[in-house]
Amino acid sequence: MLEGKVKWSNSEKGFGFIEVEGQDDVFVHFSAIQGEGFKTLEEGQAVSFEIVEGNRGPQAANVTKEA
C-alpha cells in the first residue's frame, strides 16, 4: 500500500488526484474509495491505496482514508 494526500477532488464529477511524494500524481475515481455511504475525499486528506493500470494509465484502487 502507498500513502499520499488528496491533491484535489471533485465530488460532482466523481474523481480527483492523490499526491505521492517523489512520484507523479495518481488519478482516483470515487468507485475506488472503500467504505459505506457517500464516498468523498477532502483536499489534503491522508489516504492509503494501491496502484492499478486503468484505461488511461495508472490509477488508485482500494483507497482508504487515514484517521
Results as ranks from 00 to 15, higher is better:
residue 22 G to E: 04
residue 16 G to H: 02
residue 10 N to E: 04
residue 59 Q to K: 07
residue 17 F to W: 07
residue 47 V to L: 06
residue 39 K to R: 11
residue 17 F to M: 05
residue 25 D to P: 07
residue 43 E to Y: 14
residue 46 A to G: 10
residue 13 K to Y: 08
residue 55 N to F: 15
residue 26 V to L: 08
residue 60 A to P: 01
residue 8 W to L: 03
residue 37 G to V: 08
residue 55 N to W: 14
residue 59 Q to L: 06
residue 7 K to Y: 05
residue 60 A to R: 00
residue 32 A to L: 03
residue 65 K to N: 07
residue 66 E to T: 15
residue 36 E to S: 11
residue 37 G to F: 08
residue 40 T to Y: 12
residue 24 D to T: 09
residue 31 S to E: 04
residue 16 G to L: 04
residue 34 Q to A: 11
residue 30 F to P: 02
residue 38 F to L: 13
residue 48 S to K: 15
residue 31 S to W: 05
residue 9 S to C: 15
residue 8 W to G: 01
residue 59 Q to E: 12
residue 28 V to W: 15
residue 28 V to L: 06
residue 52 V to D: 02
residue 41 L to Q: 01
residue 21 E to A: 12
residue 20 V to E: 00
residue 65 K to E: 04
residue 9 S to N: 05
residue 42 E to G: 07
residue 58 P to C: 07
residue 63 V to K: 00
residue 33 I to P: 00
residue 67 A to V: 13
residue 23 Q to M: 15
residue 11 S to T: 13
residue 7 K to L: 03
residue 43 E to H: 12
residue 18 I to M: 01
residue 13 K to V: 06
residue 46 A to V: 14
residue 44 G to K: 03
residue 46 A to C: 14
residue 38 F to D: 13
residue 27 F to Q: 01
residue 59 Q to M: 11
residue 60 A to D: 02
residue 35 G to T: 09
residue 32 A to N: 07
residue 7 K to F: 05
residue 63 V to C: 04
residue 36 E to R: 06
residue 51 I to T: 03
residue 2 L to D: 04
residue 11 S to C: 14
residue 32 A to G: 04
residue 18 I to H: 01
residue 28 V to Y: 14
residue 39 K to Y: 08
residue 2 L to G: 05
residue 24 D to E: 12
residue 42 E to F: 12
residue 31 S to F: 05
residue 52 V to M: 08
residue 67 A to K: 12
residue 38 F to H: 12
residue 50 E to K: 09
residue 65 K to I: 15
residue 64 T to G: 05
residue 34 Q to P: 06
residue 62 N to H: 09
residue 40 T to S: 11
residue 13 K to C: 12
residue 12 E to H: 11
residue 5 K to N: 08
residue 50 E to D: 08
residue 40 T to P: 04
residue 48 S to N: 09
residue 66 E to F: 14
residue 1 M to K: 15
residue 42 E to I: 13
residue 51 I to R: 05
residue 19 E to V: 10
residue 16 G to Q: 00
residue 23 Q to H: 14
residue 52 V to S: 06
residue 49 F to T: 01
residue 25 D to F: 05
residue 42 E to Y: 13
residue 44 G to Q: 04
residue 41 L to P: 01
residue 36 E to Y: 09
residue 2 L to I: 11
residue 45 Q to H: 06
residue 35 G to S: 08
residue 1 M to F: 12
residue 55 N to T: 13
residue 60 A to T: 02
residue 64 T to Q: 12
residue 58 P to F: 09
residue 61 A to K: 08
residue 40 T to G: 08
residue 52 V to H: 07
residue 39 K to L: 10
residue 33 I to H: 02
residue 46 A to T: 14
residue 12 E to K: 14
residue 52 V to A: 07
residue 48 S to L: 13
residue 43 E to G: 08
residue 55 N to H: 14
residue 2 L to M: 11
residue 6 V to Q: 01
residue 21 E to L: 12
residue 61 A to G: 07
residue 41 L to G: 00
residue 18 I to G: 01
residue 28 V to S: 00
residue 56 R to D: 06
residue 40 T to A: 09
residue 8 W to A: 00
residue 17 F to N: 00
residue 66 E to M: 15
residue 52 V to G: 03
residue 29 H to Y: 06
residue 1 M to P: 10
residue 35 G to L: 05
residue 44 G to E: 03
residue 5 K to P: 04
residue 26 V to Q: 01
residue 49 F to Y: 02
residue 36 E to V: 11
residue 8 W to R: 00
residue 20 V to Y: 06
residue 54 G to T: 13
residue 9 S to P: 03
residue 11 S to Y: 12
residue 62 N to W: 07
residue 36 E to Q: 10
residue 13 K to I: 07
residue 60 A to Q: 00
residue 49 F to M: 02
residue 56 R to V: 06
residue 23 Q to Y: 14
residue 36 E to C: 14
residue 20 V to R: 07
residue 26 V to T: 04
residue 60 A to W: 00
residue 31 S to T: 10
residue 8 W to V: 03
residue 67 A to D: 12
residue 5 K to W: 12
residue 9 S to E: 05
residue 38 F to Y: 12
residue 17 F to H: 02
residue 36 E to I: 11
residue 21 E to Q: 11
residue 19 E to P: 02
residue 29 H to F: 06
residue 36 E to L: 10
residue 19 E to T: 11
residue 44 G to Y: 03
residue 57 G to F: 03
residue 58 P to Q: 08
residue 26 V to H: 01
residue 52 V to Y: 08
residue 42 E to D: 10
residue 37 G to Y: 07
residue 41 L to Y: 04
residue 28 V to H: 02
residue 11 S to G: 09
residue 30 F to K: 04
residue 15 F to K: 00
residue 42 E to H: 13
residue 6 V to F: 06
residue 15 F to I: 08
residue 3 E to H: 15
residue 61 A to C: 11
residue 4 G to D: 03
residue 28 V to E: 02
residue 28 V to K: 00
residue 9 S to L: 15
residue 41 L to S: 01
residue 22 G to H: 04
residue 59 Q to Y: 11
residue 27 F to W: 05
residue 24 D to F: 12
residue 16 G to R: 00
residue 40 T to Q: 09
residue 63 V to D: 02
residue 35 G to H: 07
residue 59 Q to G: 02
residue 55 N to R: 13
residue 31 S to R: 03
residue 47 V to G: 01
residue 4 G to S: 00
residue 43 E to S: 12
residue 45 Q to A: 09
residue 5 K to E: 05
residue 14 G to M: 11
residue 67 A to C: 13
residue 43 E to V: 15
residue 5 K to Y: 12
residue 33 I to S: 02
residue 56 R to F: 13
residue 48 S to Y: 13
residue 24 D to M: 10
residue 27 F to M: 02
residue 54 G to K: 05
residue 30 F to I: 07
residue 55 N to Q: 12
residue 12 E to N: 10
residue 34 Q to Y: 08
residue 27 F to D: 01
residue 57 G to W: 04
residue 67 A to N: 13
residue 22 G to I: 03
residue 25 D to A: 06
residue 47 V to M: 03
residue 37 G to T: 09
residue 51 I to D: 01
residue 3 E to V: 15
residue 23 Q to C: 12
residue 48 S to F: 13
residue 51 I to H: 01
residue 18 I to C: 04
residue 39 K to G: 09
residue 9 S to R: 08
residue 2 L to C: 12
residue 37 G to H: 08
residue 7 K to G: 04
residue 6 V to S: 00
residue 20 V to L: 10
residue 56 R to H: 11
residue 65 K to A: 12
residue 7 K to A: 04
residue 43 E to A: 15
residue 26 V to K: 02
residue 8 W to Y: 14
residue 49 F to H: 00
residue 52 V to C: 10
residue 56 R to C: 14
residue 47 V to Q: 02
residue 51 I to A: 02
residue 6 V to D: 04
residue 35 G to P: 05
residue 62 N to F: 08
residue 37 G to A: 10
residue 34 Q to H: 09
residue 32 A to E: 07
residue 61 A to R: 07
residue 27 F to L: 04
residue 7 K to C: 09
residue 51 I to G: 01
residue 59 Q to N: 05
residue 3 E to D: 09
residue 14 G to S: 10
residue 38 F to I: 13
residue 42 E to S: 11
residue 25 D to M: 06
residue 53 E to S: 12
residue 24 D to N: 13
residue 24 D to K: 14
residue 26 V to R: 01
residue 31 S to H: 07
residue 19 E to D: 05
residue 58 P to M: 09
residue 64 T to E: 07
residue 59 Q to W: 06
residue 25 D to I: 05
residue 3 E to W: 15
residue 64 T to W: 15
residue 52 V to F: 08
residue 42 E to V: 12
residue 20 V to D: 01
residue 23 Q to D: 06
residue 32 A to T: 08
residue 37 G to N: 07
residue 36 E to M: 10
residue 60 A to N: 02
residue 65 K to Q: 09
residue 48 S to M: 13
residue 36 E to F: 10
residue 51 I to N: 00
residue 47 V to I: 06
residue 35 G to D: 08
residue 55 N to G: 10
residue 58 P to V: 08
residue 49 F to V: 01
residue 25 D to K: 03
residue 3 E to Y: 15
residue 1 M to H: 10
residue 55 N to C: 15
residue 17 F to A: 02
residue 19 E to W: 10
residue 28 V to G: 01
residue 6 V to M: 05
residue 50 E to L: 12
residue 13 K to P: 02
